[in-house]
Amino acid sequence: MFPMFTKETSGHNPRPSQKERWRQRVMHKFRYYVDNFNAIACVGCGRCVMACPVNLDIRKVVADIAKL
């Protein structure tokens, strides 16, 4: 999640902080990809559920993102 990824020559950066870059990551996988290709960009490995420190079922959260 590096700022250089989208930084333009002029110095302008459309995704300047971690907030925008994480938003793009999650929205791309679970919303924009669904809009464009009618599938979520998740392979279903389940590691996010196993690793969640507060025991969230992230699958439920991302299912809600697809309904945004």
Partner: peptide
């Protein structure tokens, strides 16, 4: 590459 997208 996903640099220039605005939403979808």
């Amino acid at each position: 590459c996903g640099r220039c997208n605005v939403g979808e």
